[in-house]
Nucleic acid binder design. Structure first.
Length: 326
DNA sequence: ACATGTGTTGAA
DNA sequence: TCAACACATGTG
C-alpha cells in the first residue's frame, strides 16, 4: 500500500518512463526538451545548502524541505495544488488539474486521460468542480474518492460521459463522390471550417482527434489542413480509412460535434442515408436497429471484427458484441 | 521549529 | 502563463 503518495500507479495506465510534455486530443505536437536541463548540474555536494532543484515537470516546484509543490495558473492567479513527496505525484496532480481546468487544451506531463483510455476517471474528474478537484488534490484524497465513486451510470448520478456526452452539433456534410473517392480527402465547407476548426496562422496542418459516438467510441485521427491550390479546408490523412471502414458512399451524411464545457472533445458520426449500400449495409441497419444514441459506437466496434474476419461475416459474433457493449 | 503556501518578480 | 525565490503564515 501507499502511505504517502496519492496520485500514482493505481490511478490509471500512467506508468511510462519519463515522457515529456504531452498535448491533448486535437493536438499532435508537444514534446519539449526532455531531460536537457535536468539531470546534470544540481547534484549533491553544494546543492544541499541553497539552490533548490528545479523540476522537469510542468506545474511542479521544489519545496525547501525536499518535497514538491504543484501549482497551476488561471486568470493571472496561482492555484496551489498541494505538496507531494514524489515529484511525479506532483506532476500527476498538475495533470489532473490541467485537464479539469483546460480540457482539450491541457498540456500534461503524462499521457492525458481520455474517453478511450479511462472513461470512468475522466467522467469523475469532469463531473467535479474545479474547486473540488483542487481540494482533493491538496488533501491527497483524489484516488480514494475516485475509487469510491460509482462505477458508471449510477442511478444517482446520471451518466455524464458513459452514453452521450453533452455536445453541440457543429454541422453535417453530405459527402460527395470525390469525398469518398480516390482523392483521399474530405472537403470541409469553408464556412464551417473557419468557424469551428480555425487553423492558427501559418500552421501547415494539424491532427484532429474525433471520437465516434459516446464513451469508448473509436478515436479517429485526421490531418486537417488548408489547400492553397483549391482554396479548401480538408481532412486528409486518416480519412480514407474512415471511408473504408464505415462504408461511406456518396450522399451519406457525416456529422461533426464538439462537447461543451472544458473537454471540447470533437466527435464524428456517420448518418447513412437509407437505401442501398452493398455488403456493409447489413452492418448499418443492424447498428441503427440497436440503439439510436450509440449506433455509431456499435458500428465502430463491429468494424473491428469485420477487419479480422474480412469476408466471412459472422452475425452471431456481432450480436454478442453489441449486446455486451450495451 | 519546520512545513506549507503566498507575494512577487522577471522571463517567455 | 510560468517558475524562481524569499518569506509570511500555518500547524503540531
Amino acid at each position: 500500500m501507499e502511505t504517502t503518495s496519492c496520485i500514482d500507479s493505481s490511478s490509471t495506465t500512467i506508468d511510462l518512463p519519463s515522457p515529456p510534455l504531452q498535448r491533448m486530443s486535437s493536438g499532435v505536437s508537444a514534446v519539449t526538451s526532455p531531460g536537457a536541463t535536468t539531470i546534470s548540474s544540481e547534484h549533491s555536494t553544494e546543492a544541499e545548502s541553497k539552490k533548490l532543484p528545479s523540476s522537469q515537470y510542468k506545474g511542479v516546484v521544489p519545496q525547501p524541505n525536499g518535497r514538491w509543490g504543484a501549482q497551476i495558473y488561471e486568470k493571472h492567479r496561482r492555484v496551489w495544488l498541494g505538496t507531494f513527496n514524489l515529484e511525479q505525484d506532483a506532476a500527476r496532480a498538475y495533470d489532473l488539474a490541467a485537464q479539469r481546468f483546460r480540457g482539450r487544451d491541457a498540456i500534461t506531463n503524462f499521457p492525458p486521460l481520455s474517453l478511450s483510455s479511462d472513461p470512468h476517471q475522466l467522467s469523475f474528474l469532469l463531473s467535479r468542480s474545479k474547486a473540488e478537484v483542487v481540494d482533493m488534490l491538496r488533501k491527497h484524497t483524489y484516488l480514494d474518492e475516485l475509487r469510491h465513486s460509482p462505477p458508471l451510470s449510477s442511478p444517482n448520478h446520471p451518466p455524464i460521459l458513459s452514453t452521450k456526452p453533452a455536445r453541440e452539433h457543429l454541422f453535417d456534410k453530405a459527402v460527395t463522390p470525390s469525398d469518398v473517392g480516390k482523392l483521399n480527402r474530405l472537403v470541409i465547407p469553408k464556412q464551417h471550417a473557419e468557424k469551428h476548426f480555425p487553423l492558427s496562422d501559418g500552421a501547415k496542418g494539424v491532427l484532429l482527434n474525433f471520437e465516434e459516438g459516446g464513451a469508448g467510441g473509436k478515436v479517429w485521427r485526421f490531418r486537417y489542413s488548408y489547400w492553397n491550390s483549391s482554396q479548401s479546408y480538408v481532412l486528409t490523412k486518416g480519412w480514407s480509412r474512415f471511408v473504408k471502414e464505415k462504408g461511406l458512399v456518396a450522399g451519406d451524411l457525416v456529422g461533426f460535434y464538439r462537447s461543451k464545457g472544458e473537454e471540447r472533445q470533437l466527435y464524428i458520426e456517420c448518418k447513412p442515408r437509407s437505401g442501398e449500400g452493398g455488403g456493409v449495409q447489413m452492418l448499418r441497419l443492424f447498428g441503427v436497429n440497436i440503439v439510436k444514441a450509440s449506433a455509431a459506437a456499435v458500428v465502430g466496434s463491429l468494424n473491428l471484427n469485420r477487419k479480422r474476419s474480412l469476408e466471412g461475416i459472422e452475425v452471431g459474433l456481432f450480436k454478442k458484441q453489441c449486446v455486451g457493449g450495451l
